Amino acid sequence: MGNFKEDIARTEALVFDVDGVMTDGGIVPTPDGDFIRRYNAKDGYALGYAIRMGYKICIITGGRGRTLENRLRMLGIDRFYTDCMDKITVLRNYIREEGLDPQNVIYMGDDIPDLECMREVGIPVCPADAASEVIEAARYVSEFDGGAGAVRDIVEQVLRARGDWARNSDGVTPSSLAASR
């Protein structure tokens, strides 16, 4: 474990929780058993841009619902695990399947169920409003809260460290992501 900026330049994959990381943690249950979540467009743009630039993005969340899965697909994320109660096993399998060095993996979580995963990777990070135990376990605490730019913050830092941020002015939209596949 060296300098944070040097370490993020070696990032092989970024793994995120959803509720409290990609959202502010608020959920509204719907009568059909789904949930409505509010997402930050800049977080979504950064994720879509990273995917378009060839970065590996994975979602591991206890959250569930068709609306959540639709959002992840719209961003171009194809490695996601929802309704997951054993995050560490899923993370270990993902790292093995992708042939990643855990020291070069970022995991962003915000609460107690994320701690095991954060301890498994070399670059644990969290939003500003994460649980105190998570903040203590993180190498980097974003200045932004979950659902308010924390995801964009770490994605942009990684891409900047690797010279990939804003390399072109092509926009990223769900239709452009689908066309690039």
Rank of each mutant, 00 (worst) to 15 (best):
M1V: 11
F4C: 06
K5V: 10
E6D: 14
I8Y: 10
I8P: 00
T11D: 09
T11C: 14
L14D: 03
V15S: 00
V18M: 02
D19Y: 08
D19N: 11
G20D: 09
V21T: 13
V21P: 02
D24C: 11
D24T: 14
G25P: 08
G25H: 07
G26N: 12
G26Q: 15
P29R: 11
T30P: 06
D32W: 06
G33P: 12
F35V: 12
I36E: 12
R37Y: 08
R37P: 07
R38K: 15
N40E: 10
N40R: 09
K42M: 13
D43C: 08
D43F: 06
Y45T: 03
Y45F: 15
G48Y: 00
A50P: 05
R52K: 13
R52Y: 01
G54V: 04
Y55A: 09
Y55C: 02
K56I: 14
C58K: 06
C58W: 06
T61S: 15
T61Q: 03
G63H: 04
G63I: 04
R64C: 03
T67K: 15
E69K: 12
N70P: 01
R71H: 08
M74E: 14
D78S: 12
Y81I: 01
T82Y: 01
D83H: 14
C84S: 12
C84R: 04
D86L: 05
K87D: 00
V90A: 04
L91C: 07
R92N: 14
Y94V: 12
I95P: 01
R96L: 05
R96T: 13
E98Q: 15
E98C: 11
D101S: 13
P102H: 01
N104S: 09
N104A: 10
V105L: 10
Y107G: 11
G109C: 10
D110R: 09
D111H: 09
D111F: 07
D111N: 08
I112V: 15
I112P: 02
D114G: 03
C117Y: 00
M118G: 09
V121A: 04
V121E: 00
G122K: 08
V125K: 00
P127C: 08
A131M: 11
E133K: 10
V134R: 02
I135N: 02
E136S: 13
E136G: 07
Y140N: 05
V141K: 12
V141F: 05
V141H: 03
S142L: 12
E143A: 11
E143G: 10
G146E: 08
G147Y: 05
A148G: 07
G149C: 12
A150C: 15
A150M: 12
A150K: 10
V151H: 01
Q157E: 15
R162T: 14
W165Q: 06
W165N: 07
W165F: 08
N168T: 15
N168F: 03
D170T: 01
T173Q: 05
P174D: 02
P174I: 00
S175M: 13
S175K: 05
S175A: 11
S175C: 04
L177K: 03
A178S: 08
